[in-house]
């Protein structure tokens, strides 16, 4: 079992290198995904007293508006997530799930679907650290590329997910980093992100 797992990880690492070589012109910088080797950042951030849910679509990079990209470019991502901190903090453990679908063929693997499991949750440590509307979470997941590659135990971090206002379109924004090969940061062109107080298990 362990041997099979190690083989899988080794193949994943090789695949990551191959994909990275094939993506020199990708929007994200090329690099290797450290499958199952490097743990995601954990701790180092303040405890959060809220949870987040969200879903929708991101097209434009950074904060350059929220218009949809041209259809032929396929330059957009869709997502859905729920994330919350553990009942006691510290430690900054968290739970939840994330789905992220990148459609841009110039991105890693010709685009991919990522299925992540949340293991930590804090307030942000980046430029949104002082914004109480934002949260940060991350963990590990499985990445299936459009080029038929699968990588297991890939680390990810939602550097910030911000519930700026209702509706979420044109207001809320999110930044995600997957492994070392992908990042997308933008204002929602569809959907919503909501910050909720902590109650129960949902």
């Amino acid at each position: 079992m362990n041997q099979a797992r190690h083989l899988s990880l080794a193949l994943g690492a090789v695949a990551a290198v191959l994909f990275a070589v094939g993506c020199q012109d990708a929007a994200s910088p090329p690099g290797n995904i450290t499958a199952g080797v490097t743990p995601p950042p954990k701790g180092g951030g303040p405890c959060a007293n809220f949870r987040l849910t969200g879903g929708g679509r991101v097209d434009q990079r950074d904060h350059l508006g929220y218009a949809k990209s041209t259809p032929e470019s396929h330059d957009f991502a869709t997502f859905g997530f729920q994330a919350r901190p553990s009942s006691k903090c510290p430690p900054t453990d968290g739970s939840g799930n994330l789905e992220w679908n990148e459609h841009n063929p110039a991105e890693f693997g010709g685009g991919f679907a990522f299925h992540g499991r949340v293991t930590f949750f804090t307030t942000p440590t980046d430029e949104t650290a002082a914004d109480g509307r934002c949260g940060r979470f991350g963990g590990f997941g499985r990445l299936n590329t459009r080029n038929n590659g699968t990588l297991e135990d890939v680390s990810f971090e939602v550097n910030h997910a911000c519930d700026v206002a209702e509706p979420g379109v044109g207001n809320d924004h999110i930044k995600i980093t997957i492994g070392t090969v992908y990042t997308r940061h933008g204002i929602l062109s569809g959907g919503n992100i909501q910050q909720h107080r902590l109650t129960g298990n949902n």
Binding site: R51, T53, G54, G55, T78, F79, G80, F81, Q82, E99, E166, Q194, Q195, H196, R197, T199, N202
Partner: peptide
């Protein structure tokens, strides 16, 4: 994918 939360405030 569908996500959501019912809360008193939001």
């Amino acid at each position: 994918v569908t996500t959501g939360v019912a809360d008193n405030k939001k």
